[in-house]
Design a protein around this nucleic acid. Sequence first.
DNA 1: AAGCTTACTTATTAGTTAGTAAGTAGTATC
DNA 2: GATACTACTTACTAACTAATAAGTAAGCTT
Lengths: 197, 197
Amino acid sequence: MMSQATTVSVAPDTRTRILDLAENLLLERGYNAFSYQHIARELGVKPAAIHYHFPSKDDLGTAVVARQLRRLRKWRDLPRVADLPPTEQLEAIFKVYDSHVRQERRVCLFGALAADFLTLPTPMQAELRTFNGELTAWLAQVLAVGKATGALRFMGSPSAKAVQVLTTLAGALQVARVHDETHFHTIVGQLRLELLV
Amino acid sequence: MMSQATTVSVAPDTRTRILDLAENLLLERGYNAFSYQHIARELGVKPAAIHYHFPSKDDLGTAVVARQLRRLRKWRDLPRVADLPPTEQLEAIFKVYDSHVRQERRVCLFGALAADFLTLPTPMQAELRTFNGELTAWLAQVLAVGKATGALRFMGSPSAKAVQVLTTLAGALQVARVHDETHFHTIVGQLRLELLV
DNA sequence: AAGCTTACTTATTAGTTAGTAAGTAGTATC
DNA sequence: GATACTACTTACTAACTAATAAGTAAGCTT
């Protein structure tokens, strides 16, 4: 989800490259439409090699979500994000979703897995719940401060509004995939219009 | 999607029963997690029998979406829906989504297929686009009239707001699946709070 | 130099997938 | 009463699926 820090990127090891490819396939085609063969072929390696790093597909899928959760926490706690005023924190999260649209209309992690949720391995379901829960809690806090300082406006409780806004953003990426990017920008435009004072 | 009319329900023929089962599997597990075997087993019939009615999975998937589109048009043009004032038309569409949550947290057609969209057969993609386009156009009209008569309030254009509201509703069903129904009701509560004067 | 570890390949299994071809029992039509 | 149609079943194919076991080449450790 969040962009990696601006460290010098050393050539990633195989394990990381598998995770990257799995993540791509997950966000582009869904959990049930990617196989070890897809990853192996793209990596120039045999499918059994993937099993060496991730014994089962459950392990791999769960690892992808767990990594996204670690990234979310890191991003959220970054001084350049945590110390921002609420309006800019809101813009920061919009920007994250916007980068998804520009990357070949990738949906977000939540949007990619929600439809197939009942077919996912239990640990993967749990990680996804945690991921969405923490993201929602973060935005609720942003909205609460924003309302208190008069920078943001909305009806209802901050946490209710946070659930609504994130759900809308997840859906907006899906609409962008089915139709085109303009729908995404229309929706984010609406959110700005309504939230920013 | 929409509930069937209150006609006396004759025992449905095999073709219809296949469509019903396929629709259920689609909305509960996604396009790539259901097979002819699943349908055949539940129907007490051999997989090849399904191929007799729908030669390929593409045909079956497309037929499911096409049927939903026909249902949408029928529902929308029903006097008891078309002649309603805007606020009640809005409540009517909320009710449709609410019935999904109560049916074992089924997501809507759009929410079920958006994530896997790139793996869907082309005719199925086209049907889904039409479905979403017509539903959005209908809601835009509802919102426009509602605003003109002072019964509804919102910022931005009716069509932009329609895209946003439907996207939110689709996402709300997904959130209900991943977490629980309360999230769905929270979101619909927000929409009511904001839209109804 | 011996032994261990890492990161694979080769080979194989058991199950599932969509799809096809040929056959058949029951029903309707002429 | 022969013919044809409907709605299947049986039997099969070719491909793909996740997963396992056994082997191997290279490098590191002592």
